[in-house]
């Protein structure tokens, strides 16, 4: 099939000496206050939150949902108030947090040590990857019955299962982070004479920070879930303490508003850690370094 080929149209060249002034209306106009408010993320989220609370309150009141099934928002806040100042909700929260911090700190240290061993040689790396890929999918809570037999009923058992929930995600993510540091960056570090600990501290850790932070966040999420679950089992098995136990005990006494108050505290702590603490760390590091938006 023959394709017709149009001839090239020859045109004269031209060059302009001066350009006229651009005349347009409204080059840039500031948005109105309402438009700007509606564009602010916190404003929009708070509105959604308020709407949810209003619907909750209205529904439970108008439909007359029994407080034993689903308490109103006002009841929940009242229970929270009562729990914090009359009962031991504050102390229970503190008990939970103390164990959590202890477990998290020790877990981080162990995770870091494991990843240091793993970067020191290929054999260390094999040991870590084998251990972590086997033990990471094992829910820490499944070890609680064993921990109770080994360490007895107490903080020691709790810390043990917390450690298990933190160490593997942290070690695994740190290790993958180290492994994927780009070759030029590694060579730059060695070029300027960095060796061993200084090389790890000054090149590998910052370069792998996105991955390390992801591991720390995942470790936190697992630890937080494990702790609440462990306290529930403790609460179920015998006398215990902590936030999970508070929820369990309130529910057993059919103080559902109290259980809701406990849940509210759990949400609040989780929210602060994930959306304030970790977010701030990200903004100060990854966002500023252009490793994450």
């Amino acid at each position: 099939m023959a394709v017709e080929r149009p001839p090239l149209l020859e045109r004269p060249e031209f060059e302009r000496q001066s350009l006229g002034k651009a005349a347009t209306t409204d080059v840039a106009r500031p948005l109105s206050l309402a438009e700007r408010l509606a564009n602010m993320d916190p404003v929009r989220k708070l509105t959604v939150l308020l709407a949810a609370i209003v619907i909750w309150e209205l529904y439970t009141r108008t439909a007359e949902v029994p407080a034993l099934i689903f308490p109103t928002f006002v009841d929940t806040i009242a229970a929270l108030w009562k729990g914090l100042f009359q009962y031991d909700l504050a102390t229970q929260t503190w008990t939970s947090l103390k164990i959590l911090f202890a477990g998290y700190a020790i877990g981080m240290a162990i995770g870091a040590t494991l990843s240091f061993i793993a970067v020191s040689g290929r054999f260390g790396s094999d040991i870590l990857s084998t251990l972590a890929s086997m033990l990471n999918p094992l829910p820490a809570i499944a070890l609680l019955p064993l921990a109770l037999i080994w360490f007895g009923l107490g903080a020691k058992s709790l810390v043990f299962v917390l450690l298990h929930s933190i160490v593997w995600p942290v070690a695994l993510n740190t290790h993958t982070g180290f492994m994927s540091v780009s070759e030029p960056l590694r060579m730059v570090g060695r070029n300027y004479g960095l060796r061993n600990v200084r090389y790890v501290a000054k090149v590998l850790i910052p370069a792998a920070f996105p991955s390390i932070l992801a591991g720390l966040k995942l470790g936190w999420a697992f630890a937080w879930r494990t702790l609440i679950a462990a306290e529930l089992v403790f609460g179920a098995a015998s006398e215990g303490g902590g936030l999970g136990w508070f929820i369990f005990a309130s529910r057993n006494e059919l103080d559902i508003a109290g259980a809701f108050a406990g849940l509210l505290v759990v949400i609040l702590i989780g929210f602060v850690v994930e959306n304030v603490v970790f977010r701030k760390i990200e903004e100060r590091t990854l966002v500023r370094w252009g490793m994450q938006s």
């Binding site: 999420a221 406990g262 849940l263 759990v266 949400i267 989780g270 994930e274 959306n275």
Partner: peptide
Amino acid sequence: RVWADILTTATAMFNPLPSIALLPLAMLW
């Protein structure tokens, strides 16, 4: 966009809530 706001608010609140904490209530309901 409203649903985007609802989704982000809900995930920010409920993602950090261990679902096991809901178990006592779920058993009641």
